[in-house]
Design a protein around this nucleic acid. Structure first.
Lengths: 225, 225
DNA sequence: AAAATGAACCTTACACTGTAAGCTGTCAGG
DNA sequence: CCTGACAGCTTACAGTGTAAGGTTCATTTT
C-alpha cells in the first residue's frame, strides 16, 4: 500500500529534552564509558547523526546534562538557620550522585562554567558569606566543603562498594589474613553505611567552620605540625 | 649490505618497567583521554600489539601504574607523633597527584584492590587505630579524610584552575557582573593558593579528629541540624 | 497551485580506539 | 645443526566521534 514501511520519520520527533532524557537513561544503563552517540540514537530510534542537529557534539550534550542537574538545584531559603542551609545545599548535590550514580564521576570531574552552573556556584559561595565569612575564608571553606563532598559523591557512587577496578583481585581469605584492618573496616564501607559516615564527616567540617567563625580562639588542639 | 634496514628489533628490548615509564610520559603529554596503546607504542618505538606481550590489556597496564605509584608510598614511622604521621601520609598521596596531574583523576576514581594497594590501605587504616580510634571510627574517619583528600587531588590537578570543561564559556566581564561571588573567590582558586587552602581544610579535619578522640565533650557547637 | 526554502533526519566515510588471531624473526639449549 | 619458545609484528574487526553531503517534508512565497 503505502510506498515505504519505514517512513515514520515524523519531522519534529526529536528535541533537546528528549535526547537529554534518553542520554541519562543510556548512561545509567550502559555506564559512563559504555555511553555512545550510536547507543543513544538506538534508544531514541534514530540515527546517530540526527542528534548532531540538536547538539553540535557530545561535549555540548554533556554540558546540557550537567546544566539540567545543577539547574534544578536551589539555594536554600535565607530565612533558615545558616547551618541548615548549608546542609540542605550539600545534600542536594549529594542527591544528584545518588540519582545518577553512573554519571556522578563525570559531574565530579566536570569544570562547571556555564551560566547555569555559575549561578549555582555563586549562590553557594554566597552561602558562606551569609555565614559571616569574609571573601577569602568563603573561598577556602567552599573548597574544603567541596573537596569533602566531591570525594564522598565519588566514593558513594563509583567507589569501593561497587567492586574493584583491579584486574587481579584478592580473595576474602587473603584479605582477612594479610589486610586485617581493611577487612575490619570493610563492614563500614558498604552502601548501608554511607549516610552515617557522610554525616559524621560533614558535622565535623560544619562544627569546625562554626568554631572558626565564632572566634578562632576557643579551639584548643591545632598542634600545628 | 645487511638484508634489512629495520631489523633492529633486538629481542628483549621492551620490559614492563619501560612500558610503564613510557605510559606515564604519554599520559602526561597527551592527557588521560588522549592516551592510547598506539601512542604508547609509538613512544616506545614498537607496535601496539607488542605491548600485549607484557600486559594482557590496558586495564592490566593501568593496574601496574597505580601499583607503582601506591607501592612507592610508605606508612610514616610509628615513632613520630600521630598527627605528623597522618599529615605525612596524606601529603604523600597528594604529591602523587602533583607529580602526575593528568593521571590523578584516574587514581582518584580507581577502586584499589591489588595486594600492593591493599597493603597501603591497611597501613593507613592502621594509622587511625594507632591514633586511638576503634574499628568503626577508624573506618569512618578514613573515609572522611579520604573524601577530603580525593576531592582536593581532583581539584588541584583536574579542576577549575585548568580551565573550564564547558563548551560555552562565560567572559570575565559577564562573570564580574553576574557572578560576583565566584569572581571574588576566583582569586583564591588558583594553583598558587592550593597549599594554603589544603592546609586550612586538613587542619580543620585533624583538629576535629583529635577533639573526637580526646573526649567528645569539650566540643561545644555541633548544633546537630 | 506551484515553486522555493530550510529544518530535520539519514547515509556514507574517515580517522581513531582496544584487542583477537596468527605470523615471523631471533636466540637458547640440545 | 636443529628445535622450540619467546618477543615483537601484521592484519583484521567491531567499536568510537563526527565531517560532508544527500534526502524528505512542512512551511512560506509567488
Amino acid at each position: 500500500m503505502d510506498q515505504s514501511i519505514k517512513k515514520k520519520r515524523a519531522r519534529g520527533r526529536l528535541s533537546r529534552e528528549m535526547i537529554e532524557d534518553a542520554a541519562f537513561e543510556v548512561i545509567e544503563r550502559e555506564g559512563l564509558s559504555g555511553f555512545s552517540m550510536r547507543k543513544l540514537a538506538a534508544a531514541l530510534g534514530c540515527e546517530a547523526m540526527s542528534i548532531y542537529h540538536h547538539f553540535p557534539s557530545v561535549a555540548h550534550l554533556h554540558e546540557a546534562l550537567v546544566d539540567r542537574l545543577i539547574g534544578a538545584l536551589e539555594i536554600p531559603d535565607a530565612s533558615l538557620p545558616w547551618r541548615q542551609r548549608m546542609r540542605i545545599a550539600i545534600e542536594d548535590f549529594r542527591r544528584i550522585g545518588r540519582d545518577h550514580p553512573a554519571y556522578s564521576s563525570f559531574i565530579v570531574t566536570y569544570r562547571m562554567n556555564s551560566p547555569t552552573c555559575l549561578a549555582w556556584l555563586n549562590g553557594i559561595i554566597g552561602l558562606f558569606k551569609d555565614g559571616g565569612f569574609d571573601t577569602e575564608l568563603s573561598a577556602r571553606l567552599f573548597r574544603t566543603v567541596g573537596y569533602y563532598l566531591m570525594g564522598a559523591v565519588l566514593d558513594e557512587n563509583a567507589g569501593y562498594s561497587r567492586g574493584p577496578s583491579a584486574v587481579n583481585t584478592v580473595s576474602d581469605e587473603q584479605l582477612a589474613r594479610d589486610y586485617p584492618n581493611v577487612m575490619a573496616a570493610g563492614r563500614f564501607f558498604g552502601a548501608a553505611e554511607f549516610d552515617k559516615t557522610f554525616e559524621l564527616g560533614l558535622d565535623m567540617v560544619l562544627d569546625e567552620m562554626e568554631r572558626l567563625r565564632d572566634g578562632a580562639n576557643a579551639s584548643q588542639p591545632s598542634g600545628k605540625v
